[in-house]
């Protein structure tokens, strides 16, 4: 006679694991990416940087070129394109993740100024994204690059971002460590350099490097996992 109690035990564990996995899969995806809408509040521009006022090109970005030649983002659902680059004055990094006519962008100077922006992408590849505290980003997609202008804390900067493939790209990690809310954003540039900020309870500081392969990053003695950001 074989006892089946142990089998039931194993099956119960399996069932529990399956239930939890499906719960995670349904709720986990929602909380990832931009879903939290938690654009960390942009702090005052405590560091006006060194390059003086940004090139306040009065002319709006060449978005006027409504030429349909612009390589529009992929129309097919699913595939995402990630762009990463720096502002023309080289004081900050910008990364944009595009999927299904939606875009999420991250502006970050690696010290105190950052902004998460989101919005829609038009058929011609132009986009106008907005973030909290009036941050805006206007850009067009052309020749596999996204070029335009980003304005964070009343400061306009032109930027150009080229296609980024893993491990370069846009990453974000949010978590709570010892009751402190942690929100980190990273732009991994094509040359491997990283620009990132994490805020702990609203206070921004320069972020430690993430391991681009796994997204692992140590913050406050805890390991967090930064995930690629998708719109």
């Amino acid at each position: 006679m074989k006892r089946s109690g142990p089998l039931y035990t194993l099956l119960a564990g399996l069932l529990l694991a399956a239930v939890m996995l499906s719960l995670n899969a349904t709720t986990g995806t929602k909380s990832s990416g931009y879903g939290s809408g938690g654009a960390a509040s942009v702090p005052p521009p405590s560091s006006p940087a060194t390059t003086g006022p940004p090139p306040s090109s009065a002319a709006p970005p060449p978005a006027a070129s409504t030429s349909p030649t612009a390589s529009a983002p992929p129309a097919a659902p699913g595939p995402e394109s990630v762009y990463a680059g720096r502002t023309d004055d080289d004081t900050a990094a910008v990364s944009i993740s595009v999927r299904d006519k939606k875009a999420v962008a991250y502006y970050c100077d690696g010290r105190t100024r950052e902004s998460w922006l989101k919005g829609n992408v038009e058929d011609d590849g132009s986009m106008r994204l907005t973030g909290s505290n009036g941050a805006t980003l206007e850009a067009t997609t052309r020749n596999g690059k996204v070029e335009g202008e980003v304005e964070v804390t009343d400061r306009k900067q032109e930027f150009s971002a080229a296609k980024a493939v893993k491990p370069s790209g846009l990453y974000r990690a949010t978590n709570e460590v010892r009751g402190a809310k942690i929100d980190g954003g990273w732009i991994v540039l094509q040359d491997g350099r990283q620009v990132g900020i994490f805020t702990r309870d609203g206070k921004p500081s320069s972020a430690p490097r993430i391991d681009p392969a796994t997204g692992a990053v140590a913050i406050d003695n805890a390991w967090l996992t930064a995930r690629p950001v998708t719109p």
Partner: peptide, 17 residues
């Protein structure tokens, strides 16, 4: 698989950890 980061929490606890 790609680690999903944080997933669930329970009321009354400060963190997943």
């Amino acid at each position: 698989h790609d680690p999903a980061g944080t997933a669930f929490n329970l009321a009354g606890f400060s963190s997943t950890g």
